[in-house]
């Protein structure tokens, strides 16, 4: 589903991502670990066509990053700790706006279904300015999957969420995995990564130092790999 070869992002002497290669199959749930500045966000941005690689090759769902950016954007849903939502528009208006940008069919029904599934149907006519952080992140997830992308890229979606809100978000993610979505999720929580993902990447100073099936990894091993010497 995602094919990355010798991918690098550098500027001058600074290397944000250094010669990274991997292949992710459809339906895999990949956790991306690494300390701040290890290149997690850079990798996700490159995959989402938000930034341009310095060198290397990216292919998502059979589309090549260099030539078919718009097709790739149609295939990926992106969610970060920023919600991308408009505070003066209601939950429903936000979804309708993004739906129009993605040319979603039957937008009214699709938005209603999504609002139901993320538990915000009763608040759909409220401005998102009034929403809590957890509600915003749920709506943000609804926005990310609005166009039914086969690939989901999530950059620290749990940042700033309390326990309840994180639980709700986790359940929503689980329901996506059940539907054979491919997930790449960057996060800090090692335990969460080891319990939920099927595969784990660890980035360090822009290099992919561990790429392994999650069940073969131990907590201590991960902790050691993440530690700064």
């Amino acid at each position: 589903m995602i094919d990355v070869r010798t991918l690098s992002k550098k500027f001058g002497a600074k290397k944000a991502l250094d010669n990274v290669s991997f292949t992710i199959e459809q339906g895999q749930y990949v956790a991306l670990l690494g300390v701040n500045g290890a290149g997690k966000t850079t990798l996700i941005r490159l995959l989402a066509t938000l930034a341009r690689p310095s060198a290397g090759y990216i292919e998502i769902a059979g589309f090549e990053q260099k030539k078919e950016q718009q097709q790739i954007r149609r295939c990926v849903g992106v969610m970060t700790h920023d919600s991308f939502l408009y505070a003066d528009l209601t939950a429903e208006e936000n979804l309708h706006f993004y739906g129009r940008m993605y040319d979603v069919d039957n937008l009214q029904d699709r938005a209603t279904d999504l609002l139901k599934s993320v538990g915000l149907i009763t608040r759909r006519h409220d401005k998102t300015r009034t929403f809590s952080r957890g509600m915003l992140q749920r709506l943000s997830l609804a926005r990310a999957v609005l166009h039914q992308p086969p690939v989901l890229l999530l950059d620290e979606p749990f940042a700033g969420l309390d326990v309840n809100a994180a639980d709700m978000l986790k359940q929503l993610l689980d329901s996506l995995i059940a539907r054979e979505c491919t997930l790449l999720l960057s996060l800090h929580d090692i335990d969460y990564a080891l319990q939920n993902s099927t595969r784990t990447f660890i980035l360090k100073q822009g290099k992919l130092i561990i790429d392994s099936a999650t069940k073969e990894l131990h907590h201590d091993q991960v902790r050691k790999a993440l530690a700064v010497p």
């Binding site: 718009q70 097709q71 954007r73 992106v78 970060t80 920023d82 991308f84 505070a87 940008m101």
Partner: peptide, 15 residues
């Protein structure tokens, strides 16, 4: 640029 909205626009499949 508040809430990273521009990223949301840049992700849309359009010119």
């Amino acid at each position: 640029y508040e809430n990273g909205r521009m990223q949301g626009l840049l992700l849309c499949p359009m010119d």
